[in-house]
Write a protein that binds this DNA or RNA. Structure first.
Lengths: 155, 155
DNA sequence: GCTACAAGCTGTAGTAACTACAGGATCAAG
DNA sequence: CTTGATCCTGTAGTTACTACAGCTTGTAGC
């Protein structure tokens, strides 16, 4: 044993692969305090365990599902402090409303796109009224989406 | 008439209110070329018409629905080029695929959130199933979401 | 016509949430 | 004991806004 690496420990790259996450994102989450500082090897390499994989997957999943970092931080704080269920309930139902609205909007957009495509396929008319179709007010909503990410490359 | 302002013209703040958009975002969209440079008053104040409202609403709506600025630019380019119907068809069907995928993703999220909330409501146990629910692998998906925005304050 | 004061102008800086890169150290295989 | 992959740190870049400072313009009331 030359490096203090135990069986089952993962290094950063392995954790990244395991959670399907960008390498640098892990360090980023550590610096902003979402992931605790892991133990290090003799040569200061980070050593992660199974618990880290779950926590990281949770964070990534939450981000994909439209929770902000601060919302995820709140969820993790609940978990870390033993889990006050009512807080989780409040946060999830609140988010659920937003998600339902987004689905409704997307369905409307889906119909518009489908009929536009169908009209284009039928008849090669010069008038494609896409802007009017989409710029109609479709019900107010407060957006709660995470930043667009790239193709999740692991390098 | 002291300022060259015609009836029906809107200034930036009015357009922002009209489209429920942050004041600065309008200027931002102009600088990146999403919105054309509007005519100005004598004193260089921007003067917008009805067409601008629609275009802006379209952009905002698209962003809320998870299209990137570049994707919206492409959609607008079709409209701007007089609507070459074959291009519209290609782009709309392409976007339709994305929209369908987004709906599917959000529906999955909806189910998870709903069942999590239901579990929390039923049973006030100290163990909240949200962490387990969210850290479970739900099948791979490439995220295509825009950045989270603030509360859309108009000032 | 004069005066407030809101609203607009420009340029620039800050924010969220990553993502990439440079230049060096470490680790594991051969 | 060397070599190439992996890791380290700090810092800079990216996207899509959002805010601010300092000044100009527009307009309502007197």
């Amino acid at each position: 044993m030359t490096s203090g690496l135990n069986q089952g420990d993962l290094r950063r790259g392995e954790l990244a692969r395991e959670a399907d996450c960008n390498l640098e994102t892990i360090r980023y989450y550590e610096t902003i305090g979402l992931i605790p500082h892991p133990p290090r090897s003799e040569g200061r390499h980070r050593l992660y365990g199974r618990a880290h994989i779950n926590r990281l997957r949770f964070i990534l999943r939450g981000r994909e599902l439209g929770f902000s970092i601060d919302e995820i931080r709140a969820l993790l704080a609940i978990e870390d402090s033993g889990g006050a269920c009512s807080d989780v309930y409040a946060l999830t139902t609140q988010h659920l409303v937003q998600v339902k609205r987004k689905i409704a909007d997307l369905r409307r957009l889906e119909r518009i796109l489908a009929s536009t495509a169908a009209a284009c396929a039928r008849d090669a008319s010069p008038e494609c009224p896409i802007i009017e179709a989409l710029s109609a007010r479709m019900g107010t909503q407060k957006p709660t989406m995470p930043r667009r990410r790239g193709a999740r490359s692991r390098q």
